[in-house]
């Protein structure tokens, strides 16, 4: 069922038999995935399919019922500084008393370790990351004064400041304007071209097809993983979204127009 292309090097991310349960009810069952570096991977599936749960479980934010996850051949605790994360925008309080620069500097904290404070070099990196997402003029803004798209760009800049090799992004395109969406996609492709691995939780199928090299189709179990052109088929999508006719008909029409 899982289509993993044969590649010799150590995979960036290897998930083995991962099971996660909330209150004894399993949300993810026996997931096996192995992802090599330099891929831009979309994770798609219906609501409640466990997309966010998958990436949170990978980073140890949720307890695993079974299985293990390795990054570059090492457990998360040893590879933490090589991993970047963009959480869902709604997961934080945007009234929090910090400005844009403070938030981006947080991306450096993991590397600094305990007790050390961010220095000049870190500020310079943060500034470059803000420049990359075109948010440098807002560096001193309080974060509650930002639009949704700007907030997402700040989160992206923070993840860039982590200078990671593998990125997890939880719905980075949710509720942002078209310009921000395009800017984020451009940054993701640039990262991919630098040989980094990016996993993006995404809920919009038509754009998923355009944006990602590989797709993970998820609905409690792993339905399929492979190159987008291989797995974006009516049959596999039906398996993923099984029974949800409205979504299916929408996608079918999208497929019809695309092919």
């Amino acid at each position: 069922m899982t289509k993993t292309p044969d590649r010799p090097q150590v995979p960036s991310l290897e998930i083995h038999d991962l099971t996660v349960a909330y209150h004894q009810k399993p949300v993810l069952w026996g997931i096996d995935i192995s992802i090599t570096s330099g891929r831009l991977v979309g994770i798609v599936g219906p609501n409640g399919a466990g997309k966010s749960t998958l990436i949170k479980a990978c980073m140890g934010l949720l307890p695993l019922s079974s299985g293990w996850v390795k990054f570059f051949g090492e457990p998360f605790s040893r590879a933490a500084t090589r991993i970047g994360y963009v959480p869902q925008r709604e997961s934080v309080d945007w009234d929090f008393p910090v400005n844009v620069m403070d938030v981006v500097l947080m991306g450096r904290y993991g590397r600094l370790g305990l007790l050390r404070r961010p220095g000049k070099a870190d500020r310079e990196i943060a500034r470059q990351c803000l420049e990359k997402v075109q948010m440098l003029p807002y560096a001193n803004r309080q974060i509650s004064n930002l639009s949704g798209g700007q907030q997402q760009r700040v989160f992206l800049a923070r993840a860039l400041a982590q200078e990671a090799d593998l990125y997890f992004m939880d719905e980075p395109f949710a509720g942002v304007d078209a310009a921000t969406e395009a800017a984020i996609v451009a940054v993701l492709r640039e990262l991919r071209d630098q040989g980094k691995t990016i996993l993006v939780v995404h809920h919009d199928l038509p754009t998923a097809r355009q944006y990602f090299d590989d797709l993970v189709l998820l609905n409690m179990r792993l339905v399929a993983y492979g190159k987008t052109e291989d797995v974006f088929t009516a049959e596999l999508l039906q398996k993923t979204y099984g029974g949800r006719l409205t979504i299916l008909s929408e996608v079918a029409s999208a497929l019809g127009t695309a092919r």
Binding site: K56, M59, G60, L61, F76, S77, A80, T81, I83, Y85, P87, S91, V92, D93, F96, V98, D102, V103, M106, G107, Y109, G110, L112, L114, L115, R117, P118, R158, Q162, F168
Partner: peptide, 20 residues
Amino acid sequence: FYKELLVTSFDEGFARASGL
């Protein structure tokens, strides 16, 4: 531990993902 207190207060998930 100001730095750690700040980041864990603002975004706990991110702080844990950063290995703090």
